[in-house]
């Protein structure tokens, strides 16, 4: 074909391709994409439905935090009261105590509960005997699969003053029995410890996976350079899994206001409210037990906003400091 003809043809094509055609192209591509990958979207669907039904649709009800809600009038018809419920909250000693407890328990959880799975993963990584390693891992994973109700039952039994193993051992040592679960000062250590027992093993899987992803030649190179196992752990393993640690920390900080609600409900009692009552349990008692739905919604909203801000702050800090972030 002569060159001039080819030129004419191509210029014609360019002219004949208005924006509509381009739009159609994009549409066709999108349709083709869905036709090709529909199975993947289908697999995504249940999660999206779950999110919409249990997390997005209930947001409609959030407005009662700003309303004088009455179940007879319904969400839409209850009158607006502005920030009245929030004012009530911040003058309520019990709520302020619950906020403080939440923060303090979370801080303890972060301090002791966050490093626990990392340390476990590092320890597992050092076990060379394969079947011993598998057995040990299975044993520490198990509590995760046990319902919190049973976990709480085990804890209550273990710490019981009459038959509990803890008091029995203390008895052998000549110590007086303590009714641990009625003492406010004992609630937090028991609660945090239970949390670690229940979740540290399962949590270590994420870190073990990160460790498995470290390039083995880094260790070989270090061996030739003369590093011992301790040095390899500190200088290679930990820095290599630092991005994972930071991501998990961001998620953890985002959940700071979400102290394991079930476990608190199961382990606390009025005598330990002073150290055990957290925002979520307070919301539960106010909202569901006393029927003050609007006040409880305000408290829950406050909780969520704080958590949201915390995630954003943690993510920004992490991105600035370590180039690692969730988004």
């Amino acid at each position: 074909m002569p060159k001039t003809m080819a030129k004419e043809l191509s210029s014609e094509q360019v002219i004949e391709k208005p924006s509509e055609a381009i739009k159609n192209d994009a549409l066709t591509r999108t349709i083709d994409h869905f036709k090709r990958e529909w199975q993947i979207y289908l697999m995504l669907l249940p999660t999206i439905i779950w999110f919409v039904v249990f997390l997005y649709k209930p947001m409609y009800g959030l407005q009662i935090a700003f309303k004088d809600y009455s179940i007879f009038k319904g969400v839409a018809n209850s009158p607006w009261v502005g920030f009245e419920h929030f004012e009530t909250l911040f003058t309520n000693d019990q709520f302020l105590r619950a906020v403080q407890n939440t923060i303090e328990i979370s801080a303890l959880n972060l301090l002791f509960g966050f490093p626990a799975p990392i340390i476990l993963a590092l320890m597992f990584n050092e076990i060379l005997h394969a079947s011993y390693k598998r057995t040990a891992q299975t044993i520490v994973y198990l509590p995760h699969f046990i319902s919190s109700v049973i976990i709480a039952g085990i804890v209550i039994t273990a710490f019981s003053p009459s038959a509990g193993i803890v008091n029995t051992v203390m008895g052998w040592l000549g110590l007086d029995p303590i009714y641990f679960l009625t003492q406010p000062e004992w609630f937090r250590p028991i609660f945090v410890g239970t949390g670690i027992w229940q979740e540290a093993g399962f949590g270590s899987i994420v870190f073990l996976a990160a460790i498995a992803g470290v390039n083995p030649s880094l260790y070989e190179s270090a061996v030739v350079d003369g590093a011992n196992r301790w040095q390899m752990m500190w200088r290679i393993t930990i820095p290599s899994i630092m991005p994972t640690i930071l991501i998990m920390l961001i998620i953890r900080i985002g959940n700071i206001m979400e102290v394991s609600f079930e476990l608190v409900i199961l382990l606390y009692q009025p005598s330990t409210y002073s150290t055990a009552d957290v925002v979520n349990t307070w919301v539960y008692r106010q909202g569901l037990q006393s029927g003050q739905y609007d006040l409880a919604a305000a408290a829950g909203l406050f909780n969520a906003v704080v958590a949201f801000v915390l995630v954003i702050v943690a993510n920004t800090l992490s991105r600035r400091l370590s180039r690692t972030s969730l988004w």
């Binding site: 270090a222 061996v223 350079d225 003369g226 590093a227 200088r235 820095p239 630092m242």
Partner: peptide
């Protein structure tokens, strides 16, 4: 042990420590 053989090895995939800069990588041993 490898460290007492006084040998140094250069690996196919470089085996550089991603979290250390060039100077720190060279200083490692």
């Amino acid at each position: 042990a490898p460290k007492d053989r006084d040998v140094a090895m250069v690996f196919q995939n470089y085996a550089l420590y991603p979290h250390l800069n060039v100077a720190e990588n060279m200083a490692f041993g």
